[in-house]
Amino acid sequence: MKLDDLLSMWRIRALEEKIRDLRLEGPIVGSVHLANGQESVAVGACSQLRPQDALYATYRGHGWAVARGVPPREIFAELMGRVTGVNGGRGGSAHFSAPQHGFHGENSIVGAGAPIAVGAALAGKYDGSRRAAMTVFGDGAINQGAVAEAMNFAAALGLGVVFVCENNRYSELTPIDDMVAEPDLSRRASALGIPAVRIDGNDLAQVRTATRLAVEAAAAGRGPSFIEAHTQRIVGHYIGDSEQYRPAGELERDLVVEPIARLTRELLADGVPTESVERCERRAREEMETAAAAALRDPLADPATAKEHLYA
C-alpha cells in the first residue's frame, strides 16, 4: 500500500522531471509550471475522489491529471503540441482538460476554477447524483475575489465543493505571509461557514483523511469543505525561475520534509527492502521515458485546423 503510494508520487515526479528535460531540450515550448514536492496532495486527494466527481486544477496541474488517471503519454503529447495530446495541443501545459477522467481542466487565471467547481457541484445537487466537485488552488489564490465568491456561493447553497488550498508559501516569488495579516488561510473559509482544516500536506494519511471526510460530506449533501494543505514546491515557480527569493537553508529543509523523501524514510524504517523502494523510482522513470518517447514520435498538430472548434 505504502509502496503503491510511493510509486504514484514517483510517477508525478518523474513526469515533471521529464517535462523539464523536454522543455530545456526544445520539444516543449513556452511557459511550464512544475509541482515537484507537492505530489502527496494530488495523490492523497485524488485517491478519495470517485470517478464521477469533478476536479478543477490550475496551471500547476500535471500531477493532478496523472493522479486522476490521465495517461502520461497524452500529457506529454499535449505539452509538445502533438495531435495525440489530450486536447490535440490546444490546451498546452496550463490549460488541458480530460473530462473523461474527471479532470475538468487546468486554469491559468488564478482563482477562476473555483466558481466553475461551484457550478459543477450545483449540477450534482440538481441531477441528484451528488457528484462532488473539487477545486484546487494555491495560497496566493486565496486573495482572489473569485475564490471568495465561490466559497460563499457554495456555503450559502450548501453545495458539495471541496476547496483544496495548496499552501506552498509562495505566490510566484512573493511569500504569502507578506500578503496576508492572518496567516491561517483556512479561516477565510470558516468565516463563511465552511468546515475547514489545516493539515500537513506532506503526510498522505492526513490528506486522505481530510479529503475522505470532505467528499463524504459532499456526497451526503452536507455542503462544502475547505482543506489548507501545507506543502512546498522544491523547484522554481516556472522552469527558468532563478529562485533568488528563497531564504538560505529553506530548500535544504524542504528537501527533507517533501513527501517522497519522507515516505522513503518511513518505508525503510518499516523494514521494506531498499530494492523495493528503489524500484518505484526506476519503474516510474521507465514509464515516463516510454510515454515521452512515444509522444515525441507523434505528428504535430496541423495549424490548418486552427479555426476548428471555436464554436460547437
Binding site: A54, H104, P115, I116, G119, A120, F153
Partner: peptide
C-alpha cells in the same frame, strides 16, 4: 436567486453547462 457576485454567477453557470445544464 444567486449571491451578489457576478464572477461567481458566470463561473457557476460554466460549471453547470459543463455538467449538462443550459443555464
Amino acid at each position: 436567486d444567486s449571491p451578489l457576485a457576478e464572477s461567481g454567477i458566470v463561473g457557476t453557470a460554466v460549471g453547470l453547462a459543463m455538467r449538462g445544464y443550459r443555464p
